[in-house]
C-alpha cells in the first residue's frame, strides 16, 4: 500500500476544499429533518389549505416512527444515490481527462493505494452523511412520533450502510473503467434502474444486492427470509470486493489514457 497515507491526505484536502465534505452532509441532514416534519404536519396543512368539501372525512394513514425511517430511506434511494453518482462520477476519469493524474501516475505509487484512498474518503463522507441524516430524523421522530428502539435503528443503519458502500464502489470502479459520461449512465443504470426493476419483478428471487435496502427496512419488524437476507449480505460483500479489485485493475490499465 505504497503512498496510501499521502493519497488519503490528498483526497481529504480535495473534498474539504471543494466543499463536498460540507454540502453533502448538510443536504442529507436537511432531508432527514424534512421527512418526519412533513409527514407529521401534512394532514394539518392539507386540512387548512386543501378546500376539502364540507363534511368529508379524509383519513390519513397513521404513520409510526419506524415508517418514517423507511420513507426517508426511500428518499435516499433516489436523491441520495443521484448525489453519490453525480458528485463522484469523475473521481478517477476526471483526473485522467484533465491530466492531473499524470503527475501521480509517474510516481512509484501503487494503484491499490490510489483507488482505496478515494474509496475510503468517499465512503467516509457518504456514510457520515447518511448516518447524520438518519440521526437527525431519529431526533425528530422521537419528538413528533413514537420512540424507536435503538437496537432496531442500528441494525437498520448497519444493513443499509452495506448497500451505500456498494453504491460508492460501483461509482468509483466505473470511473476507473470509463470516461465520466459513461460512468454516470452506467452507475444510474446499475444503482437506480436495476433497483426499480428488482423491486417490480424481484419477487421471483430473494438474493440480490438491490434487496439489501428492503431487508434493512425489515429490521423494524422481522425478517421473513433469514437465509435470503444473509445471502444477499454475503453476495453484496463479495461484489464490493470484486468491484474494488476491478477498479484497481482498470485504474492501472487506463493510466496510459491520462492527458500528457
Amino acid at each position: 500500500m505504497k503512498g496510501l497515507s499521502v493519497l488519503l491526505q490528498k483526497e481529504w484536502r480535495e473534498n474539504a476544499r471543494n466543499f463536498k465534505l460540507y454540502w453533502i452532509p448538510i443536504v442529507f441532514v436537511i432531508f432527514g429533518i424534512i421527512e418526519p416534519v412533513t409527514n407529521h404536519f401534512l394532514p394539518e396543512i392539507m386540512k387548512s389549505v386543501g378546500n376539502l368539501p364540507e363534511g368529508s372525512e379524509f383519513t390519513w394513514p397513521q404513520f409510526r416512527g419506524e415508517d418514517i425511517f423507511v420513507s426517508l430511506m426511500g428518499q435516499y434511494q433516489l436523491i441520495g444515490i443521484l448525489i453519490i453518482v453525480l458528485a463522484f462520477m469523475g473521481s478517477i476519469s476526471g483526473e485522467r481527462k484533465s491530466g492531473t493524474a499524470t503527475l501521480l501516475y509517474v510516481r512509484p505509487m501503487s494503484f491499490g493505494s490510489y483507488f482505496l484512498s478515494k474509496w475510503i474518503v468517499v465512503n467516509g463522507i457518504i456514510l457520515g452523511s447518511v448516518w447524520l441524516g438518519f440521526f437527525a430524523a431519529w431526533y425528530y421522530i422521537n419528538i413528533l412520533f413514537n420512540p424507536v428502539a435503538a437496537g432496531d435503528v442500528f441494525a437498520f443503519l448497519a444493513t443499509y450502510s452495506l448497500w451505500i458502500i456498494f453504491a460508492v464502489t460501483v461509482v468509483l470502479s466505473f470511473s476507473a473503467w470509463m470516461p465520466t459520461g459513461g460512468t454516470a449512465g452506467l452507475s444510474i443504470l446499475v444503482l437506480i434502474v436495476l433497483q426499480v426493476i428488482d423491486s417490480v419483478i424481484g419477487a421471483f428471487w430473494t438474493v440480490s444486492p438491490w434487496k439489501v435496502a428492503t431487508y434493512a427496512s425489515m429490521m423494524f419488524s422481522s425478517i421473513t427470509n433469514q437465509s435470503g437476507f444473509w445471502m444477499s449480505i454475503g453476495l453484496t460483500f463479495v461484489l464490493i470486493v470484486v468491484l474494488i479489485l476491478f477498479g484497481i485493475n482498470m485504474a492501472k490499465r487506463n493510466a496510459a489514457k491520462t492527458t500528457v
Binding site: F19, I26, V27, I30, V37, F41, K47, S48, Y140
Partner: peptide
C-alpha cells in the same frame, strides 16, 4: 392553523439551508 406550526422544529431546516446557500 399556521400559528400552530412549531417553528422551533422547522428553524433548523431554515438554518441549514442558509448555511448551504452561504457555502454555495
Amino acid at each position: 392553523e399556521f400559528a400552530n406550526i412549531p417553528w422551533n422544529l422547522i428553524l433548523p431546516i431554515l438554518v441549514l439551508q442558509l448555511i448551504l446557500m452561504a457555502v454555495a
